[in-house]
Every structure is written in C-alpha cells, then in structure tokens.
Amino acid sequence: MVEIARVPVLNDNYVWLIHDEASGETAAIDPAVGQPVLDAAAARGWRITQIWNTHWHPDHIGGNAEIKAATGCKITAPAAEAGKIPTLERAVSEGDKVSLGGIEAEVFEVPAHTAGHIAYHLPSEKVVFVGDTLFAMGCGKLFEGTAEQMYGNMKRLEALPADTKVYCAHEYTLANARFAITVEPDNQDLQRRFAEVVAAREAGEATVPTDIGLERATNPFMRASSIAELAERRAAKDSFRG
C-alpha cells in the first residue's frame, strides 16, 4: 500500500511525500525546504529515505541538504542537470527505474521548463510526479526549452491512462483556469471545472492532484492541436493578467 501526502510550503509550492507501507520507505518529491518536510513526515511516523528531484530550480531542491543531513536519505535527480544539483547521488535519464521499496518509478525526460527536467511515472500506482512540466490546466514556462519540446511532453503525458493521478509542484490552478476559459469559453467541461476550482480555493482547499482525464478535457496546452498553437497559448499566458 502506498500513501501520498501533500506538504504546502513557501507561497504556493507543494512537496509530496510518498510512503511505501510494506518497506517503510518514504520519498520526498522536490523538497523546496527542509524542516517543514521533515516535520510532516515525522507527524505521520515516516522517515524520509529518498529524495526525488524533477529539476534544478531552488524551490525544488532547496531542502535537499537539510533533509539528507537529518536522515541520510539518497538523492536522485536528472543526469542532465547534475552540475546544478550538488547534493545529487544518483543521476537518472530517460527509461531509468527508481524504486521505493517494491514500487518502481520510470523516468521520463520532459525538457522545456528546464533543459533536463524529468518526471517519475509509477504505473502500478497510476501516479506521475511532473514537477513544473504539467499543471492543472497549465504547463510550465519555457525557460530553457522550446514549444516543440513542451508539445511533445503534453502528447506523452496525454497518452497515459485517464485515471493517472498527476502530482505537480504548485497551486497555480485558479490562475490557470482564468486563462483557460479565455481560450475555450464554450468548453462546458472547463466551465464546470472553473466553478469547482473557484469554490475550492475560496474554501482554502487544494486543487491538486489532478488527473490525465481532466487535463485532456480542460487543459489548453494539452489540448493544443499543434506546436504553433501551444507556442501561441504559452506566449499569451505569459502576458495574461486576468
């Protein structure tokens, strides 16, 4: 049995703890900070044995050193960004496998937000940790990559089973929904989801994880019909102030 816990930190980051009950192992995904993540694990009686990083940005690796010092955990991160993640111990690339007890994650290379960004797909659990590549109704900014790369990422993730849970690293959903509705104002699935997100945020509730089925129906970047259309939508979102 696997349990996943959300740890909200900083302004809008989510760190995820995934716990394998059979082995007692716990991995922290993209720990932006140290102590709040350690505290969240301790409150559940879990000990962090691994860290999985999706990319090098400080709000995804900032807690690595502190958590390692406290627990002796092993840190896995993208090989293409090894020079930017000094705490890294195991560098992984496309197709590599990462294990948490008896649970296996496959590494996807999903560059665009950063040049070496990866995701961790756990097919047995129908779970994917996507960092800043895919958001609820959004995608990551193209800081180090291209619209072509992001379009490929969207198509790859779209092909996962519809009930695959998507664990992204930020609470961006309301802002993304406000933009998405301008792209497809007549999309009834999107209208319903927009209302649900507004209600959830007004109640102080988190809106992620999402799932692949929801993103297929409501995410303007996953729904883009071409590289050019995704590029146009990404540029529009970058300047959107709605």
Rank of each mutant, 00 (worst) to 15 (best):
M1R: 12
V2N: 11
R6D: 07
V7P: 02
L10D: 10
L10Y: 08
N13T: 12
Y14D: 10
L17H: 02
L17F: 03
S23K: 00
E25V: 07
T26E: 09
T26F: 00
T26A: 05
A27W: 00
A28I: 08
I29L: 12
P31K: 03
A32Q: 10
V33H: 10
Q35T: 14
P36W: 04
L38H: 01
D39E: 15
D39Q: 14
A40E: 02
A41D: 06
A41F: 07
A41R: 03
A43Y: 05
A43R: 15
R44P: 01
R44H: 14
R44G: 10
W46Q: 00
T49N: 07
I51P: 01
N53A: 03
T54D: 08
H55E: 11
W56Q: 07
H57N: 10
P58S: 15
G62Y: 00
G62C: 03
A65M: 11
A65K: 15
A65E: 13
A65S: 13
E66Y: 13
K68I: 09
A69T: 12
A70T: 02
G72W: 06
T76R: 04
P78A: 07
A79F: 05
A82R: 12
R90L: 12
V98N: 09
S99G: 13
S99P: 08
L100M: 12
G102W: 09
I103W: 15
I103T: 14
I103V: 15
E104W: 08
A105G: 08
V107F: 07
V107S: 06
F108Q: 07
F108P: 05
P111K: 09
A112N: 06
A115L: 14
A119T: 05
H121I: 04
S124P: 05
E125I: 01
K126N: 14
V127P: 01
V127I: 13
V127K: 04
V127H: 07
V130P: 03
F135Q: 00
F135N: 00
F135D: 00
A136I: 05
C139G: 09
C139D: 11
G140P: 00
F143N: 15
G145A: 07
Q149C: 05
Y151V: 02
N153A: 05
N153E: 00
K155Y: 07
K155T: 11
T164V: 06
V166R: 01
V166I: 15
V166W: 01
C168E: 12
C168V: 07
C168K: 05
E171T: 07
Y172Q: 14
T173F: 05
T173C: 07
L174G: 05
A175H: 11
A177S: 09
T182P: 02
V183R: 03
V183E: 04
P185N: 04
N187C: 06
N187G: 04
D189L: 13
D189F: 15
L190P: 00
Q191S: 06
A195I: 05
A199K: 15
A200I: 03
A200M: 11
R201S: 08
A203E: 10
E205D: 14
D211A: 11
I212Q: 01
L214R: 14
L214D: 11
E215R: 08
A217T: 05
T218M: 10
P220M: 03
P220L: 03
P220G: 03
F221T: 00
M222F: 10
A224N: 08
L230K: 06
A231Y: 08
R233V: 02
R233I: 09
R233H: 13
A235T: 10
K237I: 07
S239N: 10
S239E: 13
F240L: 08
R241L: 14
R241I: 13
G242P: 14
